[in-house]
Design a protein around this nucleic acid. Structure first.
Length: 274
DNA sequence: AAACAGGCCTAAA
DNA sequence: TTTAGGCCTGTT
């Protein structure tokens, strides 16, 4: 029912890195080399080969959703130039080389907020399993090519599940945080408004009002869903990176408009050294 | 078996 | 204002 669109692969675009850098928890690579996952209540299958990118989608959905989702409307060459202006030393250059091809997805704000709440004190396989379990239990199902898929549940569905329903899926202490997020986002926090009208700093302050959301989870939501490319999430890996290469301190306010993309390069670089 | 996993909350200095 | 424990669960 859907066509395969072929587009020219731009410079600095690598699906393996995009889906393997930890920003998204719902994509897996199929045996045919295509990455498959659910976003915005639809199935996306996307692959690349040489200078081509293949997207299994209607051209309407591509223009409306996936082009922006995959940040195919963004020039990463310019972003990289800007990042280089804001860093001392050659670490950033090496990280940029290692992480070349990473792009920040423009994900759904609510799903991203919940995913990073779930990420607390969990490793990536478990985060993926939990996000998938929550979707399977409380998300809307849809069918595509004979298989059933589940969208991530909206805030009403999370409220409907309740803390106990979420705990039954082994989300543990995060269950209460998800409920808290659902309550706040239904009342005094408007994620779309943060995206459209707030600065990064204002958005950070706002999201941290949610019980169970601190600077890390808030920054990830701001960066991966709300378009705030200056957000610089500091997790344990980035802490190590700062200790190792920047003498234990890095002034994140001095890193420019694309600090968050630099963060992704550094994060990917440090993780792939393992 | 104890520590850790892409944090955050709370209580106590 | 900063620091130490505790937290659900699972894996190593």
């Amino acid at each position: 029912m859907s066509d395969i669109l072929t587009i020219k692969r731009p410079d600095h675009f690598d699906l393996d890195k995009i889906f393997d850098c930890g920003q998204s928890f719902r994509f897996e690579k199929n045996a045919d080399g295509f990455w498959e996952g659910v976003a915005f209540g639809r199935l996306l299958r996307v692959g690349q080969d040489g200078d081509k990118v293949y997207i299994r989608s209607t051209s309407d959905d591509y223009e409306k959703i996936w082009k922006k989702y995959l940040s195919l409307d963004t020039d990463y060459g310019l972003i990289n130039e800007d990042i280089l202006k804001h860093f001392e030393g050659d670490v950033i250059r090496r990280a940029m080389e290692a992480g070349d091809g990473i792009r920040i997805l423009r994900q759904d704000p609510w799903e991203t907020l919940c995913s990073f709440i779930i990420s607390q004190n969990n490793n990536i396989p478990r985060i993926k399993a939990l996000v998938s379990a929550v979707s399977g239990a409380y998300g809307k199902s849809f069918e595509c090519d004979g298989a059933v898929y589940y969208a991530f549940p909206g805030r009403e569905a999370i409220l409907g599940a309740g803390e106990d329903g979420l705990k039954a899926l082994k989300t543990g202490f995060r269950a209460g945080y998800l409920i808290s997020a659902a309550e706040m986002c239904g009342e005094n926090i408007d994620l779309e408004r943060i995206r459209d009208e707030y600065t990064y700093e204002q958005g950070l302050e706002e999201l941290c009002k949610i019980k169970g959301v601190g600077p890390k989870v808030a920054s990830c939501t701001l960066l991966f869903a709300l378009g705030k490319t200056s957000a610089f999430p500091v997790d344990v890996w980035i802490k190590r990176t700062i200790d190792k290469y920047f003498g234990g301190k890095l002034d994140i306010t001095s890193l420019g408009e694309y600090a968050g993309i630099a963060q992704q390069y550094l994060f990917y670089y440090e993780r792939t050294l393992q």
